[in-house]
Design a protein around this nucleic acid. Sequence first.
DNA 1: GGGCCCGCAGGG
DNA 2: CCCTGCGGGCCC
Length: 301
Amino acid sequence: MAVQFGHIAGYPTGSPFKNREELRIAGLHSQNMAGISGNAKTGADAIVVSGGYVDDADYGEIIIYTGHGGRDPNTGRQIRDQELIDSGNAALVRSELEGLPVRVIRGRHNKRHHQSPFAPSSGYRYDGLYRVESHWAKMGVDGFRVWQFRLVKLKDGEVSTPKDTSPASIDQYAVGPAPVTTSIMQRIVRNSMIAHIVKSWYSHECQVCGLAIQVEGGLYSEGAHIRGLGQPHHGPDVPENLLCLCPNDHVRFDNGAIYLTDELHVMDALTGQAVGQLRVHKNHKIDLRHVAYHRECWTKD
DNA sequence: GGGCCCGCAGGG
DNA sequence: CCCTGCGGGCCC
């Protein structure tokens, strides 16, 4: 089952579900038991918040969600440290690094756990999209290390239809083996899905220098638009206008320290000398019109 | 209410 | 194959 990010067609925010099986059939959450849906490589697409972990806190628009692992299945208490590399926890880190939207589903809190005022009185309820803002480790109330994630509800303005991208292009670059229909992909966080696809081609290795930043929980890279989005450049949010860069080369590129020739040589603006060749994946068609636009912004003659 | 046991999906 | 995981139903 492919990991699907964003809203799922036919199930608006507030949709009720009887149990986990209904959620799984509807495609909102792939797991029958686990709280985190998704995987470490692609990211987490959904979580269930049902107060299963004692260190959780639900403030409505902000959720402190505890990662999984280290729990005694019978008592629900922590009996050993949690690990960030456990797939569900790493999946949430991946969603944080790439700004992917996470579906939040609240479940009725059973008596074993503390009640959240935001929990439904019965069953489960889809409560919309959140972003993972940060994560950290702390000593849990049971005396073992837990990993925690701060999730913040996305405003409607932060969730939008990618008007600049043709439906065909979305299908072509769909995440996962199954074809993705445009109805499922209708509402996604601007830019993050396109960047996610481009980054996956390069395994987060910078197209300029080849470096992939290693952080706890995985690799990091940035999606750099060749021709900027919005005012005044009006570049499109498509893979043809995006590069996978390390933070240093992203800053260099956005501020004119480096630019590209039509042959995709990397040029040092200070010396005017070529300093390398842009790495390009076979699936990545770079639009030279955007390359020329960027170059003309940063060259005098 | 708690205990028990039977589930499935996903990953190693 | 094994194991784990914010279920769930049934029994008492």
